[in-house]
Amino acid sequence: MAVDRRAAAAIIMTAIAMTERRAELDGAASATLVLLCLLWGLQQVAIKVAMTGFSPVLQGGLRSLGALALLWAWAALRGMRLFERDGTLGLGLLAGTLFAGEFLLIYTGLSYTTVSRSILFLYTAPFLVSVGAHLLLPGERMRGVQAAGLACAFVGVAVAFADGLRLPTNREMVGDLMVLAAAVLWAATTLVIKGSKLVRASSTKVLFYQLAVSGAVMPVASLLMGEAGVTAPGPLALACLAFQIVVVAFASYLAWFWLVARYPAARLSAFTFLTPLFGVLSGALLLGERVSASLAAAMLLVCAGIWLVNRRARAAGA
């Protein structure tokens, strides 16, 4: 009887989890995604400013450790058990390792290649997520119009950063490959979460795994890489680090992993093409950086791509 009760409970919990998943994005989810992309765009400025007081990889490690402490407090206030045995430990450590590797490659790659080139290679990730979901996740097959929408959004990003592109030097090619590998890890993290028991775990626990592993790995990597570490952090650098900890790594990632568990991967990934465009706008407004005249066209292409990816299919199928 005990086995029967456990089996029945598992069936009920699976049914509940399935009913929470949506085939399409609703208005609230879309608005949340735009806000998240805006925050991630602002993060690009925050990272640049915080580099005046903290080395890049150490900065990433401090961000994860600070957000981990906040997440632990959040879980305690809500009475959530982060260490309860639910069969997700191995998968969680895998997701955390992929997450840590992604940011290590991004920060290291940026020391070899330009920001413009790194953004283009990093934003191959939505394609990888969509193809992986199409091949590996039942119910997330990509339609032709969605593939066209992703391509349209990627072209928009390429248009925005076209001024900074040219044939790479050997050094830049090394950085390009690092950032491309980071894109693969970003996609792999999303697919591991979507295609495993982690999709039924709380978003708090999923994020906990990733912050814990990256918080442990990145400061050690910073030492091994010979980074300067904490140099002379002023109030502005500290404020930018605090923004990354509280707003980005804690609040925005918690919201993102909640969305990943409930909505189709391809539809979510299309919105992330807004992030580099918001980053350009943030750099122009806050740092006085030059904005390309083609930014408006880029924004239109990205928005058109998002619309195509999230367009409702006709009854006969699109």
Rank of each mutant, 00 (worst) to 15 (best):
W256Y: 12
L241Y: 08
F273P: 04
V206M: 02
L268A: 12
G279F: 01
G234R: 11
A239V: 04
F257I: 15
F278T: 04
A261M: 06
F257Q: 04
V302G: 01
V291I: 14
A251M: 10
R267N: 09
W256L: 11
C240M: 10
L301V: 12
P233C: 12
A216Y: 13
V291G: 13
P219F: 00
Y209W: 14
S292Q: 08
L268Y: 02
L300N: 03
L241T: 03
W256Q: 08
S222D: 01
W256P: 00
P235C: 15
V206N: 06
V206P: 01
M299R: 12
L259C: 01
L295K: 11
A239P: 07
G283L: 08
L236E: 11
R267I: 09
A249E: 15
Q244N: 07
A251G: 03
S269W: 04
I306T: 06
P235A: 09
T204M: 09
C240G: 11
Q244A: 05
L259N: 01
F278V: 02
S252I: 05
R267D: 01
T231L: 13
L286N: 14
L295Q: 13
A304N: 13
F243K: 00
G279V: 06
R200T: 14
L274T: 00
F243M: 00
E289R: 12
V213H: 01
L295Y: 13
S203K: 05
E227T: 03
A221F: 02
V199L: 06
S269V: 10
G305I: 02
V213A: 06
R267T: 08
T204S: 15
G229K: 04
M225T: 07
T275P: 05
V217E: 10
A265W: 01
P233N: 04
L287S: 10
F278W: 06
L207T: 05
F250W: 12
P276T: 05
C303A: 14
I245K: 00
A232T: 11
C240A: 15
F257Y: 11
L287K: 10
Y209N: 02
L238N: 07
V199M: 13
A298P: 04
L300F: 03
P235I: 14
E227H: 07
L268W: 08
Y253Q: 10
T204K: 06
G283M: 00
L301P: 01
A266N: 11
A239C: 11
V206A: 01
S282H: 04
G215S: 03
K205M: 03
M225E: 14
V220S: 02
A249S: 15
V247D: 07
R262L: 03
Q244S: 13
P264W: 02
R290V: 15
G305N: 00
K205G: 04
R200K: 10
L277C: 05
A239R: 03
L287G: 09
L236Q: 14
F257M: 07
G234D: 14
V246M: 02
A216L: 09
A216E: 03
G279K: 00
Y263G: 00
P233Q: 09
L287H: 04
A265D: 07
A298D: 06
F271L: 08
A228N: 08
R267K: 15
T231G: 08
A212V: 14
L211R: 01
A221H: 07
G283Y: 07
A232M: 15
A298T: 10
F208L: 12
Q210C: 07
A265N: 12
M299S: 12
T275M: 09
F250A: 01
L277K: 09
G283W: 06
M225K: 08
L259I: 09
V199D: 05
L238R: 13
L286Y: 09
G226R: 06
